[in-house]
Amino acid sequence: MTPSLQALGAIVAKDLRTELRTMRSLPAMILFAVTTFIIFRFGLDRTALSGSLASGVVWTTLLFAAVLGINRIFLPEREEGGFDAFRLAPVDRPVLFVAKATVLFLYLVVLEVIVVPVFAVFFLNDWSGLVPLIPVLLLTNLGFAALGTLISSMAVNSRARDLLVPLLLLPLVVPLMIAATGATSPLLDSGGPSFDKFGTWLLVLGLYDGVFCLVGYAVFDFLLED
């Protein structure tokens, strides 16, 4: 195992262990998402959803739940000196970016594993669209993880952390949301899933992920310096 991989593993394991021990982010994200579904139930006054309405509700909810997690991802590094400790260590800087993006990605997977079935139980009559939804979820998670890590690392060193994350992140993820909802709404159509432009949207998601993974990896160095 190369030193970078070992360090990556160490950071990811450290974060997951801390989360398991303190339950600081994930339960809040899940609770928030489920409550939001209930608010949509009454806000839209609908007991069943399909098509673009269903995909809009599920993605809006996931996005805002993700923001909760993104807000906190660098908090221990900032407040308990992790940034300094990391900068003293013989590890390449982008390792921290990759590690945090990995942690965020895993958080989002756990969130979706719990919350998407809840959504289906609450609102969907036809569950056959859920399996092809998996690649859409994974690709969108990657985009959230890359952009969220980048934004969070900037915001955590500023005075207005909680405010800046959604402010900066929301416009940046609009294209991600367009592609994710574009791929999702035919899957959740009331007449059973259809794959209208499915591949094209996945391609857009992949392209977007690729660009911002690269940008984040390249500029992260400059965010760590004092």
Binding site: K14, R17, R21, E80, G81, G82, D84
Partner: peptide
């Protein structure tokens, strides 16, 4: 600062 994680 001790540079230690409080929850570990």
């Amino acid at each position: 600062e001790p540079l230690l994680y409080e929850d570990l």
